[in-house]
Write a protein that binds this DNA or RNA. Sequence first.
DNA 1: TTGTACGCGTTATCAT
DNA 2: ATGATAACGCGTACAA
Lengths: 278, 278
Amino acid sequence: MADVAKEAGVDKATVSRVLRGDPRISSKTREKVWEVIKRLEYKPNALARGLSERKSGLISVEVEEQQFSGLNRFLKGINRIMATVNKEPIIYVADDFEASFLRSRFVAHKVEGIIWVGSPPPDVDFPLIAVGETIDKHVSIVPFWEDLAQMIIKLADGRRIVFAGDTKPNRTLKVKLKGYKGKGKNSLWVCDGTLPKGIGRLINSNYEIDQDSGFKEEYFRKGDMLLLFDERDFAKAMGGYCIHFPCFEMGVLAAKLLVNILRHRDVPFKNLVRFSIE
Amino acid sequence: MADVAKEAGVDKATVSRVLRGDPRISSKTREKVWEVIKRLEYKPNALARGLSERKSGLISVEVEEQQFSGLNRFLKGINRIMATVNKEPIIYVADDFEASFLRSRFVAHKVEGIIWVGSPPPDVDFPLIAVGETIDKHVSIVPFWEDLAQMIIKLADGRRIVFAGDTKPNRTLKVKLKGYKGKGKNSLWVCDGTLPKGIGRLINSNYEIDQDSGFKEEYFRKGDMLLLFDERDFAKAMGGYCIHFPCFEMGVLAAKLLVNILRHRDVPFKNLVRFSIE
DNA sequence: TTGTACGCGTTATCAT
DNA sequence: ATGATAACGCGTACAA
């Protein structure tokens, strides 16, 4: 910065002001300084800026979920927003880190806010967006499971409903679907644990196995409505439907909400994100 | 830090030395200082430290892959190592960021090194680990596709081989498998694009469809060997095999290699990671 | 509109 | 073995 200042024949403070878009700087000076900045390929030092401003420009993303196949889309959504406001996300996959350990890292790096996927600890004193579950104490983003259930029931039109894949449907969805009565003998099957576990249990149960297809008869029968999360082409290949889990949208929303909180704006407390079925 | 120093009756410099484990400090002083640090819940400021040391303790993880369902495991592997050496990963999902934009962020935040998933730009001047493909110019981590091909061929024992799911097998694997001749009419099918696209193409082809199971006949026949990446229980439910993509191991390895590079140690240039089949 | 000077919280270099 | 002090690079009152 000192180099730029000297080269442009102004003071460091002026360079700083130009950089920060201070309106008091004359356009002549501003243009001159920008010219030098570009010519010298000067990049401000985020550490020094952070030290001076007492904030780092870093936000933290905590991910507890073991199975989160849409994580890259979620992060992409976050980045899309953060890149426009000069904030950098730090990501942890936190399942095995304890809260106190994480906290000390937040403090050390002067993290400005947190996006927490899963259920955040109750006593965090950082700006926090909770993603996935409604937490009374925090602004939260929740997939609109009730709406998904309605869509599925309508689409099923009496068929038995079968899920496949490793994405874990929420409890709300399962409860909703439990109320559904189809036409078949077993009008509905939804596993009661995570899906992989549920499937494992089925395999070990005493249903007959269709040796011809290599496919478990009790798992997927003729006439069933098969549902997969996010594997669009695979689902179609199997004659089923794909539920689009709105990970990208959730990332975008989480980032926007956090930015607004950091700017002391009011934000809606509970935010629902819609699924779509294809 | 000044508070701690005053409270412990020593100088700031001494506190700093205690914190950094300087061996010249007497054990009496050390214990006293640690006591005060804990009592006051003092946490060092990473920004100030970084400013002074001219490095941030930040490393960057770039992810180009659109489909990377093991990203959370990969990041967990990275974190596992980084947490032991006081380095924090910043993650970008970078498919839509241009190199110059990323570079300026690296510079601004004094990023110490980069883990790049995909094919990194040729002219980066940061310590860099390339993950997924062998890049002559960089230390790289590559899944051992050749080995996987051997395992599959041995396990198939003449059966036709069919992949499913959204994970994209590497070109090497496909080339290797092309050399394989099984017993069936079509001894082998591997799609020639990404898998989802390949599946989509099959659906639109003129094969017959098995209406009984709702399953496409041409996609998966009796006697075929079905392979899925990482969906263990689902694969088993379908009577197939699960290929374990070693994402966690790759994350751990990437982090270890990068740390060693930052410590100016020699590291192997090409690193293979083994699959396992279950 | 721009310059001066101090503070931000560490580490590192001299001293002692 | 420890203390005093100068960087580190930037933002910002306060002055001019």
